[in-house]
Design a protein around this nucleic acid. Structure first.
Lengths: 100, 100
DNA sequence: TAGGTATATCGGGAAAAGTCGATATACCTT
DNA sequence: AAGGTATATCGACTTTTCCCGATATACCTA
């Protein structure tokens, strides 16, 4: 885990918001047709709508979060789904408690 | 605790380094004459030397870390000493574990 | 009060991040 | 193969961050 990369990923209001939404997707997103929240997460389009930024910006943000390790993605048909990597959050919490 | 502000403060290599040094000052800094590491921390000059950046930059960085709550400062005579606020780190770790 | 030392603040140039519209790519359907 | 939909990437512009030198402020000592 690249600490600096993770903290940079977390240094943006919208990206923090996205991570928070993805914690309980059923609470923040309408039901999806082609996939289950718990399995693969939420598709880019839904996240984009909720974020209120352009498609390109949100796609970029999701990519940043994924590269940092905080999100994982799954491609299903024409959709890409993103979900949290809870292990990464646990690791980060531990790093802050005892390493940093 | 302003999460975004804290993550921004953590999004810089030198600032991360400083926090790490201040975890065990006796390990990373020569003994000080006018104050005890455990009491008040390390003075700006020592941190600046170790960081290898200009005085103004390091002063600014320490100020950012203090505003975020991760550091506390004490003025003693002509020196300002900075030390970690361990409670803030504990709080941040908790936020990442259960809130974010 | 004058000069010295430590730190903070200011102003600016360079680099990085934020954000967009346009375009490319991938995949699905017919 | 053609057209439609979802996502990714590109190029450009704006805003923020990085980092410096210069200057201001605070405090100490003679």
């Amino acid at each position: 885990m690249d600490q600096l990369e993770v903290f940079k990923a977390l240094s943006n209001k919208t990206r923090l918001q996205i991570l928070y939404w993805l914690k309980t997707p059923e609470k923040y997103f309408p039901a999806q047709e082609h996939a289950d929240f718990g399995e693969v997460g939420v598709c880019v389009g839904q996240i984009q709508q909720k974020a209120g930024l352009t498609q390109s910006t949100v796609s970029e943000y999701l990519s940043i979060l994924q590269k940092s390790g905080l999100l994982e993605s799954t491609r299903l048909g024409q959709w890409t789904y993103y979900k949290r990597n809870e292990q990464a959050f646990a690791e980060l919490s531990g790093i802050i408690r005892s390493e940093i």
